[in-house]
Design a protein around this nucleic acid. Structure first.
Lengths: 253, 253
DNA sequence: CGGAAATTTGAAATCGCTCAATGATAGTGG
DNA sequence: CCACTATCATTGAGCGATTTCAAATTTCCG
């Protein structure tokens, strides 16, 4: 198994080697997808989660009319499909945005990990809370700000996440999304997404050339977007019990 | 300690008496609030979570311009403030919508529970995933549907949650929110919320008298709202390991 | 090179917003 | 109980943002 991007799991609780390895052993399959291919469809039985190993993907909620809302853009290291662990049938569709490699993890194996590796369970719990905050911020963004501001907020959040991925120049974002897909993220129409790009361009906060966007003034973008900056804490003090109370290596089977 | 509404915690994993009791012992304080009082403010240190024991409350994200988005309406039994466990400073403000009673739970005590009561930890994990689905559905609703449809979706979700609370007649909803607050949920303005109420009234799907709303045609509302129905699973099969692998009662201190 | 998909632009219609004013309702203190 | 006040609900009119429909242009890919 090649190096996995485990920064998301390690973000809140530094896992030891055994724990990280236990995670890498969860996958039963390594699938490849091409752009626009469905990884999982809303309504499918939800007995698996997915680890995005390479490429970009999206979680979408489809409305009864067929229109589609992209509720999350996934980057390498993301666990996809976890919300549907609470359901019998998946709440969201997962779609590859670029060619992508995905590790398939049966839910039952994840369940075993909850027993054997409580630190990993805690890491996944915190990761879920982090996702909630991101969703809440996007709800605010869509509910209370204009299309241009939402676009600024989207670019900022991508910048932040690409930085965490140790991307070489995160302020240069090569968007693999079409304008229609960006529109599906922002809650606007494709035509308006185009005008919105032009509008943001005109502010001078970003410069755009095709699908390559360079963020020129990040503090300016942030105050323009009106979305507060979130400072996640690396090792939450309230979880200190985990380090003392639980034997370190009981992970291997 | 009086009977707590623990249906949310028991929804996914039936806790035994010791586990439920361990949870009730978490609280260090029982606070009362009046309508509109702030329970916690965005930016406050996030070293506590809150259990809503009685009354309604709201989680709000405030934008940099001062406008406020209500990201969640809380009913009795909800745990509030958990997303901010991942942060040093709270991401959301918590506000009482009616007079309310709230149990204050220090984060550190919650952390201890993660070690001593893994079933409770799993229940909170699943609850967080459920919240993510609700947030995703609202993102779809706000991003892709009209104001009237969003209002229908809001009323439906309240109906569903009131039913789970064993409310006597959940199709009769006595909203404790002003129209301005409803507008802050739906991502519209207060004036438009009023027109939207009138519009929904005119469809015949609901009837409204002041703040009392009666849902007349629930299937009709559901298809009108375009939000898919979610069937959460009571005891996810994938977590079966928890029942075998972990000693049942090691909960008491 | 050809064809499909994506981007860009225009014009008209619609939805929701803002500003402003008027009625209702509830709470308060006399 | 009533006047007083503040908050909330309602309505109108005009404006702005976004949508819709339609067409032209560009880019991508085989």
């Amino acid at each position: 198994m090649p190096d996995l991007p485990l920064h998301r799991l390690n973000q809140f609780i530094a896992l030891n080697g055994a724990e990280a390895e236990a995670f890498t052993r969860l996958a039963v399959e390594d699938r490849r997808y091409v752009r626009h291919e469905l990884i999982r469809c809303q309504g499918d039985p939800s007995d698996e989660v997915f680890f995005l190993f390479e490429g970009w993907a999206a979680s979408c909620v489809d409305s009864a009319t067929g229109s589609r809302q992209i509720v999350k853009i996934h980057l390498p290291g993301d666990i996809m499909g976890a919300p549907s662990l609470a359901l019998r049938r998946a709440a969201e569709s997962l779609m590859a945005l670029t060619s992508a490699r995905v590790h398939v993890i049966p839910s039952t194996r994840l369940g075993e990990l909850f027993v054997t590796a409580p630190k990993l369970a805690a890491a996944m719990f915190l990761s879920a809370q982090q996702e909630r905050i991101w969703l809440m911020d996007r709800l605010m963004s869509i509910g209370r700000t204009s299309a241009v501001q939402r676009l600024a907020a989207l670019l900022l959040s991508l910048h932040e996440r690409l930085s965490a991925l140790a991307s070489p120049s995160p302020e240069r974002i090569e968007l693999p999304l079409s304008q229609e897909e960006v529109a599906n993220v922002l809650g606007i129409t494709a035509v308006h997404a185009n005008r919105t790009f032009a509008q943001l361009d005109a502010t001078g906060l970003v410069s755009r050339c095709g699908r390559v966007i360079v963020l020129l003034d990040i503090p300016g973008l942030r105050s323009f977007s009106c979305v507060p900056k979130r400072e996640f804490q690396q090792t939450p003090a309230w979880l200190s019990g985990l380090r003392q109370g639980v034997p370190e290596v009981e992970v291997g089977t």
